[in-house]
């Protein structure tokens, strides 16, 4: 039996390297390659560990342009069983509401699922909305910042340990449910050549358009997006001090550092 798991992955520009054109002040997007949102790889790893323990199947879904097939192949390379890409011009320009609507439709169409796993947030928009919104669309329970998941097959429920600033909470939740995984919970596993080969040779990725999805086009893409970005402002540059203390003895160096932090009012003496 095992678990039918769906995991959401977003195809994002590698923002470690988004530069600003010094002349125009705009983002330089030329040639910035996309990657699977790193926190979603953590979610994929969680899904795969659950599959390793309890059996079942992992399906990755993404709403993105066709280039995201490379991202689905990446997670299939890690061990995901199949990928579904929701891709259509009418999905473009979506805010989180419209994105979650389409993802919920994809999940509805998949139909057979026990657990939906999302990442903590994305590196390019970082709203952390999608998990909650997908759960609302599907009227499912939602829990976020999950660190550990144990499955009880008899009860069809999971025990979720979620992390707070200085405490853990443990919940028992009936499936199906939506869970977002706290960032850095796991390192994603390595890509296996057998899995990559499967991705290329066994047709494991399907592309679904709005027609496949029974979608109200007024709820998708730009049209379905009530959010308006009124302006973008740059974070003012914080002036920084810079002092170098050359000291071999770590004790003395630490003392000096603590003294400095106290002087700056950043530490209580």
């Amino acid at each position: 039996m095992g678990l039918e798991i769906i995991v959401g992955i977003k195809w994002v520009p590698n923002t470690t390297s988004v530069n600003i054109d010094p002349k125009t002040g705009t983002l330089i997007r030329e040639g910035i390659p996309s990657v699977v949102n790193p926190h979603d790889l953590t979610a994929v790893e969680m899904a795969l560990r659950l599959k390793d323990r309890y059996g079942g199947r992992v399906t990755a879904i993404s709403m993105a342009p066709p280039s995201a097939i490379a991202g689905l192949e990446h997670v299939i390379g890690m061990g995901v069983d199949r990928g579904i890409l929701a891709s259509d011009r009418v999905f473009a320009g979506a805010d989180t509401l419209a994105t979650s609507y389409v993802l919920a439709k994809v999940i509805e169409k998949i139909g057979d699922y026990d657990l939906i796993i999302m990442g903590h947030e994305t590196i390019d928009s970082s709203t952390a909305h999608i998990g909650a919104q997908v759960a609302s669309w599907l009227k499912l329970p939602y829990i976020y910042y999950a660190k550990e998941i144990d499955y009880n097959e008899k009860e069809k429920s999971i025990m979720v340990k979620r992390i707070l600033e200085n405490a853990f909470e443990i919940y028992k939740i009936k499936l199906p449910a939506v869970v977002s995984i706290a960032m850095h919970t796991y390192e994603p596993r390595r890509i296996k050549i057998s899995n990559k080969l499967r991705a290329k040779m066994e047709n494991l990725i399907q592309v679904w358009t709005s027609k496949d999805l029974d979608i109200d086009v007024n709820c998708a893409g730009l049209r379905g997006s009530p959010t308006v970005v009124s302006a973008i402002d740059f974070v003012p540059k914080v002036p920084r001090k810079n002092e170098i203390f050359n000291e071999k003895d770590p004790r003395k160096a630490a003392k000096w550092l603590i003294q400095k932090l106290i002087e700056e009012g950043l530490l209580d003496p």
Binding site: A70, H74, G77, I191, I193, K196, L197, K200, M201
Partner: peptide, 12 residues
């Protein structure tokens, strides 16, 4: 190469 039918696996 791919157009000729070779299978290309990246990230390997």
């Amino acid at each position: 190469a791919v157009n000729q039918g070779a299978i290309l696996l990246t990230e390997i």
